[in-house]
Design a protein around this nucleic acid. Structure first.
Lengths: 310, 310
DNA sequence: CTGAAAGCGCTTACAG
DNA sequence: CTGAAAGCGCTTACAG
């Protein structure tokens, strides 16, 4: 784009009549350095005048790591939650002079390695990481009560309040990465609520297949009165299948989604769902990544968005 | 992570008994160098044994640019199209030793600058760029007949075939970046097809507001028989509004979407829409970015997915 | 209070 | 056929 050579530290040093070291000290507010106020002011001024911006690559080479955080997000994990999560992560990182870059697609070792080799990011995060290894969030206390997994409980609790005891978990066709952990959590909650053991119902992408799946369920387990969907997407699919079978929702079958997607409002009946403060999760993640204190970050607890389907 | 110091060029040189320059020449297949086959073989072997991977940052500092391409994608532009586009871009870049990183959120100059400062990417692309400046795709010939904008024509042509002449363009609440260009294109097409001049109908996110908007349209322009939606999302919103007003679709009002989203299959009536080969677009973009020939890349033309709504 | 120097890991003229 | 050297732009002991 610009033809003119970029302004370097050297230029600023020359124009200020000091060494590069001094400029670096001033610009970085390096501790334990004693720079005369006059010099400091002059350097700052010159650097502004020249429009100096540090060369990230050079800095990264020297510091051993770039001020970049890479988030890996797997195909199929994109959604309302991830969008908000990314927004929170991004904003918080920006406030600490870091930039978030996202890598889409399957998370393979070579993909991660490629990124590491290419830019030595400050951190590489995998979306949903905390859940993927089955450990679940390792933050103790209430901090993660609102977490993605934990809030699966909200769905079940709501259904229980409506009197449902025979519930099925609606799953996407392709098993998403955090399934195991969430399912385990959901089962535990169901047990606590005195519900029958949870069974999963895979709802394929293809509408006819989803309808067939629901029909089979109705035949085999007529006692089931509600579907707790893995996400809104799946919930919407359940709704479509119910419609195809001529079922009344929520009369014959209640459906609750997860993740408060825009599309959920547009179905008929409109999808009841769970809303999560994903942006806060992103902000927490950012602070954790950078090794900063998370105190002072606010988060609103998850809540059920009651519409018509449950 | 790993405690052990990383293997550098120097290590490989030492272990092979040659200079760093020679190792670099061998590993990069630098032209116009004459390395003895024996040396070459030895260096390659040692480099493999030591598990050497070039340090991207150092290379970037030296070469002046990293092997990274950054794609900026604005909030609200995420969708089926962008996902496929990203996949294509990503795969094609990978085949040429580059990695794609995505920046989400508003595309401001400072955001772009930040990325540039941080990693000096090989290229920074803005999603939909070709359309944003109103120029439209600058590739001549048939190459971009399938492009995002051009295919708006497909919607109108299909509606015309069904006998519609009074058509309204359904728009998202927040005007998406490529609106102008697409609209201009659509108007041109409408004129060619002998349709009445196209008017836009903003369909707000909130369901009740969307319904009100459609009600107003019906009152003011009862002659309108079809909505060509800017995307499936908007199409689905139009469907919901029509349902709220008790309209029969497509009898009273036909609706056609754009971008073949999964949700479109799940509405009732199911959304008729346009499918585009976005992955191919991504691949083309990648080749263009890297200054490579696009010959040999296949793309399938866009097509109408006829379902029930139009 | 400030500067000269080393070094992060690589590539590429240049010299032999 | 191969190597010594410079340099990309920065930071940080170290020396004064």
């Amino acid at each position: 784009m610009s033809d003119t050579r970029r302004t370097t530290l050297k230029d600023v040093a020359a124009a200020s009549g000091v060494s590069r070291a001094t400029v670096s000290f001033v610009l970085n507010d390096t501790p334990n350095q004693t720079i005369s106020p006059a010099t400091r002011e002059r350097v700052l001024q010159v650097s502004r005048d020249l429009g100096y911006v540090p060369h990230g690559i050079a800095r990264a080479l020297r510091e051993g790591t770039s001020r970049i955080v890479v988030l890996h997000i797997e195909t199929g994990m994109e959604g309302n939650y991830s969008r908000s999560y990314i927004r929170g992560l991004d904003n918080e990182l920006a406030e600490h002079q870091h930039v978030l870059l996202v890598r889409h697609g399957p998370v393979s070792d070579v993909a991660v390695q490629q990124v590491l080799d290419a830019i030595n990011p400050r951190a590489v995060v995998r979306f949903g990481e905390a859940y993927l290894d089955g450990r679940g969030p390792d933050l103790s206390g209430d901090d993660w009560q609102d977490s993605f997994a934990a809030n699966a409980a909200l769905q079940l609790r709501y259904l229980a309040e409506q009197g449902h005891t025979e519930v099925v978990v609606g799953m996407p066709e392709q098993e998403p990465p955090l399934t195991d952990f969430r399912l385990r959590y959901a089962r535990q909650t169901a047990a606590q609520l005195g519900m029958a053991p949870l069974v999963t119902l895979p709802l394929p992408r293809q509408r006819s297949a989803a309808t067939a799946a629901l029909r089979a369920l109705r035949a085999e387990r007529p006692e089931v009165t509600a579907i707790a969907a893995h996400d809104d997407e799946t919930g919407i699919r359940a709704l479509a299948a119910a419609r195809d079978l001529g079922l009344r929702v929520p009369g014959d079958l209640a459906v609750i989604g997860f993740d408060d997607t825009e599309n959920g409002e547009l179905t008929s009946p409109a999808l009841t769902t769970v809303h999560i403060d994903a942006e806060a999760h992103g902000r927490f993640a950012a602070r954790n990544l950078l090794g900063l204190d998370t105190a002072g970050l606010v988060r609103t607890p998850a809540r059920v968005i009651v519409r018509e389907s449950a």
